[in-house]
Amino acid sequence: MIRKSVLVLCSVLALSGCATWFDHNSRTQRGTVVEYLYPKGDKPTLAPTVPELRLPLRVGIAFVPGERFGDLSEAERNLLLNKVKAAFANRPYISAIEVIPSAYLRAGGGFDNLQQAARMFNVDVITLLSYDQVQFNDSNRLSLLYWTIVGAYLVNGDQYDVNTLVDASVFDVSSRTLLFRAPGTSQIKGSSPLVKFSEVSREARSEGFRKAIDSLIPQLDQQLESFKIRVKEEKVARVVEKPGYSGHSGGDSGLAGLGLIGLATALTIARKRRGG
């Protein structure tokens, strides 16, 4: 009798364990601008400088180097960066946007590393995309059906909640000044059977990044416009036009043109008088 009871108890424990074998901890991946630019607690310098922006700008864009084993692959990063690039590439004051691969930035590299990359890609301004993604995993009531084994394949007993923040910080490289920043967020919720959970939630994390970038682009555009206004009104940056570039032009004949027309007019009048 005791033997039977022990056997039944062991079987129950073993089967109920199915539901708890799965790791329900939250999962985080993060790459922050502060850790990259100010490693080991370096303090930002507070020297008041007015950055000089030479138009048209050459802009670099990169993800902040974060955790090595974050599951955002280089190819996916490239796709996301190119999405941002495409949204801003046709601005007349931007001559080029260069996507800087993660391999060119070193975790904790600081401004020295940023300036190296800027020189290498010949850019004046770099947009750094930092990210913070948290995934919460929970089991719902349907997970009881995992006891049937088949349930683990068919029943959506596990759910995830992926919260993503992507923050774009635009830095003037030579003055090491933050020009402006804009955030993009997303939340993806879903559920899946136990056996597919890893794959489905990985896709949700990628989707979270894609949606956060989609939400970032209009915010970045808005911040860019308000930065342009602040440059005009508050003089937060000095804008210098590179030779051959002017964002503002006038259709004007100039004094030389007016002089030519004036001379031609005088000649015409003189000829008419002589003729008359």
Partner: peptide
């Protein structure tokens, strides 16, 4: 493309 504003 670099010409943003023009009048004249």
């Amino acid at each position: 493309p670099e010409l943003e504003h023009y009048r004249g």
